[in-house]
Design a protein around this nucleic acid. Structure first.
Lengths: 347, 347
DNA sequence: TATTAGCACTCTTTTATTTCGAGTGCTAAC
DNA sequence: GTTAGCACTCGAAATAAAAGAGTGCTAATA
C-alpha cells in the first residue's frame, strides 16, 4: 500500500535526509547541510522554504528559533512506516553466537538478548514464551521425603516447571504411582486453558481417598504454570542508554534502567504487544505511543516470535527516538527467524 | 579488643564528627561546623589544628586547598572498625515483608534483596547458596518422550535443578524404575564433592547394558549442579546509585549498573567473600579494598548466611563510601538472622 | 603550654557579561 | 520557482568579576 502522506517527492527526500542525518549526529539539522548532502541541487534558501512547510505539516520541529530542525514523533512515524514497506532480509551469523552457550531455552533467550544488545547498541528485552495455550507434555509426582512431594511439569517445548507440595499424610509408593498414571492419562496433551473445574472434580473423584492430595497438587500445578505468576523477562544492555546524551542526561536514564531492573513495566510492553491482533510483524512505538510512560522519550520496537501452538514471546528494543530503525528492524527480523528455527529444530 | 589507633579522645571525637556529618551531607566538613556541633567547646582554630594533625595521620583529606575535610579510606576504616565493636541487634518487621510473597527459595531471596534495597537506599545483591558441599536429597529420571529423559535433582534445602537428557535408545518403564532405584540408593545423602569417578564407574557397572545412559545422566547431573555453571545472583535497587551525586556523575554510575546487569563482577565479590576464612560476620570493603575495580568509588558491605551443611550465600550492599555503615550493618545482621530462621523452619 | 582571635590568602562556586556562530526568515533580484 | 543577500535571534562557549567558605599562620591570652 502507498502511504497517505500529502508530501511530494522533494519534501519527502528532504524529510528523510533530515531524519537520517539526525539519527547519525543527534544534532538539529540545518538547511545548508541538506542542500549540500542531497543531489537535489537546491540552495539552502529553497530548502528553508520547504522546511518551513514541513514544520507547518508537523513533521519536523525546532528546539528553538535559529536552530536546525529535528524530526517530530509524526516525522519518525512516517519514516518508519515507509521503512516497513520495503521488506528485506539478510541472514547474519547470529545463530552461532546464540547456540554457543545455549542448552536450555532460558539460556538461549538470555544469550539472544545479549547478542541483540551488542549488535544494536540499544537496550533489549526478551520475554519467555507465555504458555497459556501451551500443552502439558508430562507431569510427575515424586516423594522427596515424608511430607514433601515434588511435582515436575514439562510443557510442550520442554519448558520445565517444578513445585514442592507439602502434604499432611505420607503416601506410599504405589499410591504415588497411581496418581501419576491418573494425572498423565488425564492431563497430557491438554492446554492450561482446558483444565477446568469439571475436570479437576472428576480427577478428585477418581483419586478416591486421596482427593485432597490431588486437589493440592492441581492447585500447585495451576499456580506454577500461571503466566502472570511471573513472566520471565531477560534483558541486556540497559547501560546502552548512556550512549545517547538525550537519554543519559536527565532522570530518564534512571527511569529506564529502573524499568529494566524491576521488569514490572517491561511486562506491560509485552502484554500490549501480544494483545495486538496483527502482531505477526514488527511494531514500533515512538515517544508517547509507548505503553509505558517512563519511556516517553524513547522508541520501543517489538517483535513477536512463535513457538507454534499459540506459544509466543516478545522481543523488544528500547533506544532513543533517533534509533536506527532500519538496522533494528532488519536485525529483529533475522533474530525472529533464527529463534523460530532453533526452537523448531530442538523440539 | 581495643583498636590500636594512636588517637586521643578529642581527635577521635572530631574524626567521628567529621565522618558522621559527611555521611549526611556529602559535603566537605569545615572547622567551624565541628566547633559548633560538638560539645567539646573548642574554637574553630583549635579544631583546625587538630584537623591538620588528623590529616597528617592520614585519616582525613582535603579535596582542594581551602575546602573542608572529608574522610579518607583509612578514616572510614577506623570508623567501621569501631562500629564493629559495639554489637547490637534490633529485630524489625522484615520477615513479614519477605514471607508475604515467598514460597520458593529464589523468591525469598529476590524479595530479600528488594526489601534490603528499599530499607537502605543502596544497591543490593544476594547470591543463592552455593551447593558445593550440599547433599543430594533425591534424584529422579522420568521419560518425557521417546528420546528424552528428564532428570530432576533435589538438593538439601529443596533446591531443585532439572535437565533434559537426550538418549539414543528408548527405555522401558521398568528400566527407568531400576535406574532410579540405583541412583537414589547410591547417591542420596552424598555431596557433590563426594561423587567421584570410582563411584561413577561402579554405578555404570551395576547399570549393566545401560551404563551408557547412566554415564550421560551422571554427566548431566554433575554439569547441572556445578556451581560455577551459573551462580544465581539476585539484585535490587541498582538505580539507588543515582541518589548519590558522587556516584551518579561520572561514568561510575554506568559501571556499577553494568556490573549489576551482567552479574559477572558481582560473582567475584561473592567468591571473595566466601573464601575468607573468618567469614561468619560482616565484611566491609572501602574504596580500593573492593575486589572489583569498577566499584573503587564505592563501599561494599557483605555478609554471609548459612543454610547448614556448608551451604552458604552472600548478601551484599553497594553504596557510596559515605554509606551509613551503622544502619547497614544493623540491617544486615537482622536480615541474616531472618534468613537463617526462615530457611531452617522451612526445611 | 594550650587555646583563641584575627587576618591574609586560596580556590571553588556563582553570577554576570561578552563574544561567537549556526541558522532562520524575509526581501528583492534572477 | 529559485536564489543571493542580509539583518536578526538565540543558544553555547568564553571570559571576567564577585562571593564565600575555609584554611594556615601569627600573635595575643589564660
Amino acid at each position: 500500500m502507498a502511504l497517505d502522506h500529502g508530501l511530494d517527492n522533494r519534501k519527502l527526500t528532504i524529510l528523510q535526509t533530515i531524519i537520517k542525518t539526525y539519527l547519525e549526529t543527534g544534532e538539529p539539522v540545518g538547511s545548508r547541510t541538506i542542500s549540500k548532502y542531497t543531489d537535489l541541487n537546491l540552495s539552502s534558501a529553497t530548502i528553508r522554504n520547504e522546511m518551513a512547510d514541513l514544520e507547518d505539516l508537523g513533521y519536523i520541529m525546532q528546539p528553538h528559533t535559529s536552530a536546525g530542525r529535528i524530526p517530530s514523533d509524526k516525522g519518525y512515524r512516517l519514516y518508519v512506516d515507509l521503512l516497513m514497506e520495503e521488506k528485506e532480509q539478510e541472514v547474519i551469523e547470529m545463530r552461532e553466537a546464540m547456540l554457543e552457550k545455549a542448552d536450555k531455552m532460558d539460556k538461549i533467550l538470555k544469550q539472544a538478548a545479549k547478542v541483540l544488545a551488542v549488535n544494536t547498541n540499544y537496550a533489549t528485552m526478551i520475554s519467555a514464551p507465555t504458555i497459556n495455550r501451551n500443552k502439558l507434555k508430562f507431569i510427575q509426582l515424586s516423594q522427596v521425603d515424608d511430607h514433601q512431594i515434588i511435582a515436575v511439569i514439562v510443557m510442550e517445548g520442554n519448558i520445565i516447571k517444578n513445585k514442592i507440595v507439602t502434604v499432611a499424610e505420607t503416601l506410599s509408593n504405589e499410591i504415588i504411582l497411581k496418581l501419576n498414571m491418573l494425572l498423565n492419562t488425564t492431563l497430557t496433551g491438554m492446554s492450561i486453558e482446558e483444565i477446568n473445574l469439571g475436570m479437576i472434580a472428576r480427577l478428585k473423584e477418581q483419586a478416591g481417598i486421596h482427593s485432597e492430595v490431588i486437589g493440592d497438587v492441581l492447585d500447585a500445578v495451576a499456580a506454577t504454570i500461571q503466566l502472570d505468576n511471573d513472566m520471565e523477562i531477560y534483558t541486556s544492555g540497559a547501560t546502552n542508554v548512556f550512549k545517547y546524551p538525550e537519554l543519559s542526561d536527565n532522570q530518564s536514564a534512571q527511569e529506564i534502567i529502573n524499568a529494566f531492573e524491576e521488569k514490572q513495566l517491561l511486562q506491560e510492553i509485552v502484554t500490549q504487544t501480544l494483545s495486538q491482533e496483527e502482531n505477526k510483524g514488527i511494531q514500533v512505538y515512538i515517544g508517547n505511543e509507548t505503553p509505558v510512560q517512563s519511556m516517553k522519550d524513547c522508541s520501543v520496537v517489538t517483535a513477536t516470535y512463535e513457538l507454534g501452538e499459540g506459544m509466543q514471546g516478545t522481543i523488544g528494543i528500547i533506544g532513543p527516538k533517533r534509533m536506527d530503525y532500519e538496522h533494528v528492524m532488519k536485525t529483529l527480523k533475522t533474530l525472529m527467524t533464527e529463534l523460530d528455527e532453533i526452537f523448531h529444530k530442538e523440539e
